[in-house]
């Protein structure tokens, strides 16, 4: 049976890279004694795949991976068994069974939303100063930033990738406490992908602040699929069991 597992990656685990998080789950699944399926061949591996790789330094409460299982018990039991063995910072939030024809999560991701808050080492009013520029930026038809690729650097219009941008007034239970935060919903996935850092950089430019990526903490709230007008979180296609 194909399952989709939603999890958090918080706290100091933001310094663990994507491949290591995959290895961490492979071991956790074994410790939890879940009947994951193995591929055939001389060195069989677990049939699991992750939705959207996360860069080092980012935290999240909306990560997903899909796994093929030979036997399953119930959502509650499997969650409990995983959470009992996962390290502090990773919590399984939900497990759903996918329909047989469900596409792999990696291929359907179309958007993510994030909150941005101040890293404790930087000056206190930095987020407020950026928030003041949000309305200006939302009114701009074109937002250009320098985008670096491996080979070149060029001015790119990031506006098409910004689906929403405003102040965030709630406190996430999965992050450190902050006084001010910015919310952004951005395109992500294989068709159009916009990194939150580029939006912060654009806001900094508006506010006349020198951009320094270590001044900000980026936290993903949720990963979505579907068209821009009808975005759904990745977990909505499945059912509890």
């Amino acid at each position: 049976m194909k399952l989709r597992i939603k999890y958090t990656k918080t706290g100091v685990l933001r310094f663990i890279g994507h491949l290591d998080i995959m290895r961490l789950f492979q071991k956790a699944i074994r410790r939890a004694k879940l009947n994951v399926s193995y591929s055939k061949g001389f060195s069989p591996h677990q049939v699991i795949s992750f939705a959207a790789p996360m860069p080092l330094g980012m935290t999240s409460e909306g990560e997903y991976f899909d796994g093929e299982f030979d036997l399953v018990t119930s959502t509650a039991d499997m969650m409990q068994r995983l959470n009992d063995t996962l390290p502090e910072g990773i919590v399984v939030l939900d497990i759903v069974a996918l329909p047989d024809d469900a596409k792999p999560s990696m291929s359907i991701v179309s958007a993510s939303d994030y909150i941005i808050f101040r890293n404790e080492e930087c000056e206190e009013d930095i987020i407020s100063r950026l928030i003041e520029k949000i309305d200006d930026m939302n009114a701009m038809p074109v937002v250009e930033v320098m985008k670096k690729t491996k080979t070149k650097e060029e001015l790119t219009n990031i506006k098409p990738g910004i689906y929403a941008l405003h102040e965030y007034v709630k406190q996430s239970p999965y992050t450190e406490v902050y006084d001010k935060a910015i919310y952004m919903m951005l395109a992500s996935g294989s068709i159009l992908n916009l990194k939150p850092e580029l939006v912060i950089e654009a806001l900094c430019k508006q506010a006349g602040i020198t951009y320094n990526r270590y001044n900000y903490r980026v936290h993903r709230l949720e990963t979505y699929m579907g068209e821009r007008t009808s975005l759904q979180s990745l977990g909505t296609v499945g059912k509890h069991f």
Partner: peptide, 10 residues
């Protein structure tokens, strides 16, 4: 590899 210095392993 900052993971060398953060502890918190299983």
């Amino acid at each position: 590899k900052p993971a060398r210095y953060i502890g918190n392993e299983v």
